[in-house]
């Protein structure tokens, strides 16, 4: 297709994902604040997108025919920054400036400051609309590129998500794929306790979307689902990716308290040691 698309196997995806998780821990520990839980839960999805699926060129972040990725759950930006750096959009050293005054890596994504970031997000519920606008523009132009939007599960409690879901189906966009990082937890607790989002698949189907459900930590399933999404015609598609919040760090996994808290230096050390050892 084009020269800059790396073809890496699942072993290499796993190695990149492990590095990305280490970056996430180091970045957030260094900044003293941030959102490790939801960054770790979507890391495998982002690595798969940027290393196997998205047609992007790190040397030309504004290449007009690039695929677009919108991180609607903007608080997971440490994962996005780490993946962009690994992919070559900017030097890895910049990762350690996260959340500092004057940094290109803001606490939530700023498309004007960070090469490769396609939308400014952070106030939940807005990214699917932005992605739909991109998809409509691409369709108007007969452009080859596609749009991917990553949503959080708590985020779909926002009404605007369903406005966008309705409109995407109304306009029959099939160059738009949504992915739900379904880790089941939000700041105040489990989705089911805070505000039930189930039945998730039925809701999206009722809104006119094609739906599939996968394990969001298995590269083969993520890849297969993204292939499936590209094959859907005449309607938008969503991948419901079952994930584990804090994935990869034993004491963060499934723990709601790690939504928006930085690890202490000792905790970071332990987390990095675990991520070193993981296969």
């Amino acid at each position: 297709m084009h020269a800059h698309e790396p073809r890496v196997g699942e072993d290499e995806l796993a190695r990149v994902a492990r590095r990305v998780r280490r970056h996430i821990v180091r970045m957030i520990a260094g900044a003293g604040s941030g959102h490790p839980g939801g960054s770790l839960s979507c890391a495998d999805i982002l690595v798969t997108l940027y290393f196997r699926v998205l047609r992007v060129d790190p040397r030309r972040p504004q290449w007009p025919d690039r695929d677009r990725f919108v991180l609607s759950k903007g608080h997971a930006c440490p994962a996005l920054y780490a993946v962009l750096a690994e992919r070559g959009f900017f030097p890895l050293d910049e990762l350690w400036t996260l959340r500092r005054l004057g940094s290109s890596l803001q606490g939530h994504p700023d498309m004007r400051k960070t090469p490769g970031v396609e939308a400014s997000t952070g106030s939940l519920g807005q990214g699917l609309s932005v992605g739909l606008g991109m998809a409509l523009a691409g369709r108007l132009d007969g452009a080859p590129w596609r749009v991917y939007v990553l949503l959080g599960d708590g985020e779909i409690q926002e009404g605007q998500v369903w406005e966008a879901a309705m409109a995407a189906a109304h306009y029959g966009v099939d160059n738009l794929t949504a992915i739900l990082d379904w880790n089941g937890l939000q700041i105040d607790g489990p989705n089911d306790e805070v505000m039930t989002v189930r039945p998730v698949a039925d809701k999206w189907r009722a809104f006119g979307w094609e739906v599939t459900e996968i394990d969001g930590h298995r590269f083969d399933e993520i890849l297969e689902a993204l292939r499936w999404a590209r094959s859907v015609r005449g309607k938008p598609a969503i991948i419901l990716a079952r994930t584990v919040k804090g994935r990869g760090v034993s004491f963060m996994e499934g723990q709601v308290d790690w939504h928006g808290k930085a690890p202490s230096p000792a905790q970071a050390e332990q987390a990095l040691a675990e991520l070193e050892g993981e296969a």
């Binding site: 609309s129 739909l132 606008g133 523009a137 406005e163």
Partner: peptide
């Protein structure tokens, strides 16, 4: 709200 977000995407 969706209209404004879609407008943002079209502009980008």
């Amino acid at each position: 709200q969706n209209m404004m977000g879609v407008a943002a995407g079209l502009a980008s």
